[in-house]
Amino acid sequence: MRKINFLIVVLSGILFLLSCTPAKEKLYTKNRVAMDTFITVTVASSSDRDAEKAMDRALAEIERLSVLFNYFSEGSEVSLINRNAGIRPVVVSKETVDIIEQALSVSRETDGAFDITIGPVMALWDFHHGVLPEEQAVKARLELVGYRHVEVDREKRTVFLRKKGMQIDLGGIAKGYGADKAVEILKKNGIRAGLVAVAGDIKAFGMKPGRSSWRIGIRDPRQGNDTKEIFASLPLREQAISTSGDYERFFFRSGVRYHHLLDPKTGYPASGCRSVSVVTGEGALTDAFSTGIFVLGPRKGMETLRRLGFDGVIVDSNGVVSLTEGIKGSIAFSEKKS
């Protein structure tokens, strides 16, 4: 009889503890290569199957978009638009119209500092082999740059580049847009918290298991040997973050750093910043504005962030860090500031 009592006590104990942890949520992660970069999707879920299904669908959506937006692929809608520059408007998908309209609105807000028509000038630069383009060639190609020459007809779903030779490249906005769309898919599939990172363009929603916020590190623009060393971190809730820096693709010539963030007005790398991080609700906006603000420089860039009500971190060319008001209370710096 006493043995039975012992067993009852032990079993009750086990059942009590199990009742405290019903279907515990875990974090699941999946990676894939698309949009010429590495994508990580993380979700909180209490079901392996639900998590897998949602992550696969989110990744498939990014892959689908990357086919539409690929500058280098003959079959993409972007290539179709570029081939028909100066010839005729082309009918494209709703997503292509959508992303181009968003890109044009960022161009207007940054007075052309972000411009998807920079492609012909960008093509002259070879950052991998460190080739400086001819000044005359840059000047000539600048004639083809100008977001005002992009015509979008939302009703007819057409896009037209007015000048022959013009090209659009959505590389400066597509990753953030992809993160937005992947988050939409995760939510539609019942995920209540997750994080999509398309390279450094990151969008988060909900809280991690344990009710903590997602924490995002900002890469140190002048890191040492330890790649991806961060200089600051901040919590991200229902927001996106993107960072543009002069360290991504660059070469040195006569002591000058030539990097890939070109000023669409000059055709040469913008000076004034080492890196710019932008935080707001939409990934497409953080992606495009981080480039636009970088090109505008620290002073005009900070003014633009404040005017639009976005948060941001600007590291200027001397390593001085400026923050918007909204970020001051939550950002944490690592010991070594850049």
Partner: peptide, 10 residues
């Protein structure tokens, strides 16, 4: 510790 991040931007 502090350096455990969910993602890194940049």
């Amino acid at each position: 510790g502090r350096r455990e991040m969910d993602a890194i931007s940049g």
